[in-house]
Amino acid sequence: MFVVLIRSLILYILVIFAVRLMGKRQLGELQPSELVITILISNIATLPIEDVNIPVIVGVTPILSLVCFEVLMSGLTLKFPKFRRLVSGSPKIIIHNGVVDQKVMNELRFSVDDLVSAMRGKDVFDISEVQFAIVETNGSFSVMKKREDDVPKLSDIGVYAQNSDPPQLIVADGKMITPAIEFLGSSPEAVRRVISGIGMKLEQVMIMTADSDGKCYIARKNGGSPYIIEGANL
């Protein structure tokens, strides 16, 4: 029993390491080869956990080697586009100029229901609104609406808007998040000054966000309305 527990811990750490080694891309969108590797790893990892007669190294070797092959393979696909097309395939245009391509649908084994469902997933309920749609190599669906049916942009209606980065979380549960403060080009002292400016201590702050324009949002731990400060000197 204890052996199984230790083996489970070892393989848990190994699988976490393997997923981290594959990179962030793995967690969000799976390419065909990544999907295969993920399924294989999950199957292989259970073998040495269940059967104590199998040495851990016999489970570790295929997991590590598969992940390493995958990382090297993704490196190669990055360098050689032809190889990438061979391994991952290429995106398929399924609707062009508002016309559904039946041939591509057959090629992808995409039924009409699948197509309508994928469009609904993109908040498109009327197929006549679609100008262009593409099925990506990871199976996700991208849609471009016809200009007359699309949401107007600010530039379309002649409104000028300045681009800026989103607000950063700089204090969480009374603790400063130094990398975020540095990202804003500020310092912990400046943040402390802003907090004391509204008569609070750092320990009393639950959430504090700030953007590059100095707009701060400060929520207190003991509840109550949050403070919103415009143009703070951070």
Binding site: L21, G23, T61, L64, S65, C68, F69, V71, L72, G75
Partner: peptide, 18 residues
């Protein structure tokens, strides 16, 4: 870095297998 790490791991596994 990941590719270098993967290469090193594969070499280690190869040496261990041999």
């Amino acid at each position: 870095t990941r590719m270098i790490m993967s290469g090193c791991i594969l070499v280690t596994l190869l040496v261990m297998s041999i």
